[in-house]
Design a protein around this nucleic acid. Structure first.
Lengths: 135, 135
DNA sequence: CAGAATCCCATACGATACTG
DNA sequence: CAGTATCGTATGGGATTCTG
């Protein structure tokens, strides 16, 4: 079907699947890379967390987007939702095995970005070469 | 508690930077994980490509978004733009050294998604799932 | 506390037309 | 060929309010 098993174990073939418009991987990628998807997943990497805790950790997220992102990620099987029928309610979110696998691929990315973001933003030269420096 | 004693402090801290609202890494992450950012970067992994070729490979992208995404990524220093002053124009885009580093962190992610997307989407149980209308 | 529902706006995005 | 400019729409997403 989509992943020819007989091909070389080259990572490229599976990676380029996402370039195809009709491929399911496009959808999953969109879910994960949605504005808050990565942040929620990365936050959960440090263990199960409650709603209020996630909301605090993913700085700036609104309740609406937290709920929406959590539901999408849960629908994809990345996140497990544990609602305890008590008053007041307590709901814990955690990574599923699948989610944990995903996050393992996410961490190198966000870590690298975290380490290089300063340089990248600092050198914001919105031009091919240095924009005419000092002229 | 946010500082688990038994973990590797370096890796965790850089990864969680992105959770902070004011952190530059948030901006870079948004650029990279923008709707078309990942696709452009992954596409360029297989070597320098012309405008028209990128447009063809990133299926579904509009000219506007191709231009916009390329400029943002170029501004971040991930992509190099080589415009040849000939008629008709020929412009080649390629990854910079920085961009290549980034893509190395992107490939495991998109590869993994490419390999698991079918399962993920297939089992899409979004709450009270609608009965599959095979008709 | 953990959400759902509603309102509403900003902008991301696509389609088209135009240009050097 | 490789864009830019303009326009219109869809949707993302924040603020607020309400509920069990």
């Amino acid at each position: 079907m989509t992943a020819p098993a007989g091909f070389h174990p080259s990572a490229v073939s599976a990676a380029t699947l996402v370039l195809q418009a009709d491929c399911p991987s496009r959808t999953v990628l969109d879910h994960v890379t949605s504005k808050w998807g990565v942040l929620i997943l990365v936050s959960l990497e440090s263990g199960p967390q409650r709603w209020s805790e996630l909301r605090r950790r993913a700085e700036g997220i609104s309740e609406k987007m937290l709920a929406q992102t959590l539901r999408t990620l849960e629908g994809d099987g990345f996140i497990h939702r544990d609602a305890q029928p008590i008053i007041p309610p307590r709901v814990d979110y955690s990574l599923t095995a699948l989610g944990a696998e995903l996050v393992q691929r996410l961490l190198p990315l966000v870590t690298w970005i975290g380490e290089h973001a300063d340089d990248i933003i600092a050198s914001t030269a919105v031009g091919p070469d240095k924009v005419s420096a000092t002229s």
